[in-house]
């Protein structure tokens, strides 16, 4: 009975949404702010990837919020799962799970640097090719994940994670505040560097710097989240 009610409710919702969206023809060009972006991203900012230009410059505040959401998620998980680091300092608790096979371990050793380089490549070239800070950060976190699942004695040093996370976040906000002092319009996150020319590695001025900071921060945060989750059995005290 309850299911029927829910299904009928969903049908109503689906119908009204479909009714609304079917007016919008698929694949038709529409007017809007996007044409402004497509015009000004290569001209004013000299950034090839318009999505990056939007994410970092035009809507840079969203990105700051997004990074904060991840930071918040990492903190929240620490709060929710009662992870107390101080208890375990120096003990280096070992996970009791069976060791991965040697082949996987060797592969982890082999692929880890490659993944790191790939991640760095992705966020350094964020303004030229698809990808950027988030993707690069996610890739770096995946690299650590590879080590975490192939070596049971591997332990992420929380000291460094915290430092990287905080410093990257601070540099993001600092770049923004510098924009308020040095930028031509005195506004937050404004570009105050030479923008260079299109499709150069050193183009886009402050955008590349911001994306590098975002990359480090996201990488550190996701690594922290994964490490919290993986070590949950040993460190979370059970009540």
């Amino acid at each position: 009975m309850k299911k029927l009610v829910i299904i009928s409710l969903l049908l109503v919702l689906g119908y009204s949404l479909m009714n609304t969206f079917s007016d919008i023809e698929f694949g038709k060009k529409r007017e809007g702010i996007s044409s402004y972006f497509l015009e000004h991203s290569p001209d004013d900012l000299q950034v090839a990837n318009t999505v990056t230009a939007i994410v970092v410059s035009f809507r840079g505040f969203d990105t700051l919020g997004e990074v904060t959401v991840l930071f918040l998620a990492a903190t929240a998980m620490g709060t929710i799962l009662f992870r107390r680091r101080s208890k375990h300092t120096g003990l280096n608790p070992q996970r009791k799970s069976p060791q991965a096979s040697r082949i996987v371990q060797a592969a982890g050793k082999l692929l880890f640097p490659a993944i790191m380089i790939l991640g760095a490549y992705v966020f350094i070239h964020g303004h030229l090719t698809p990808g950027g800070g988030f993707q690069g950060g996610a890739i770096i976190a995946t690299g650590f994940l590879l080590l975490l699942i192939s070596y049971r004695q591997f332990k992420v040093e929380h000291k460094y994670v915290t430092w990287i996370e905080s410093l990257a976040g601070l540099s993001f906000v600092t770049i923004g505040l510098l924009g308020m002092i040095l930028g031509p319009h005195n506004s937050f996150l404004e570009n105050f560097l030479n923008v260079g020319s299109l499709n150069d590695l050193l183009s886009g001025g402050v955008i590349a710097l911001v994306y590098i900071a975002v990359g480090f921060k996201v990488g550190a945060e996701l690594t922290g989240i994964l490490d919290t989750l993986i070590n949950i059995r040993e460190t979370g005290d059970i009540d």
Binding site: V122, P130, G131, F134, Q135, A138, I139, A141, T142, L145, L222, L226
Partner: peptide, 10 residues
């Protein structure tokens, strides 16, 4: 790219 990095692995 984002979906691949976040959705598939993480």
């Amino acid at each position: 790219l984002t979906e691949a990095a976040i959705g598939v692995a993480l």
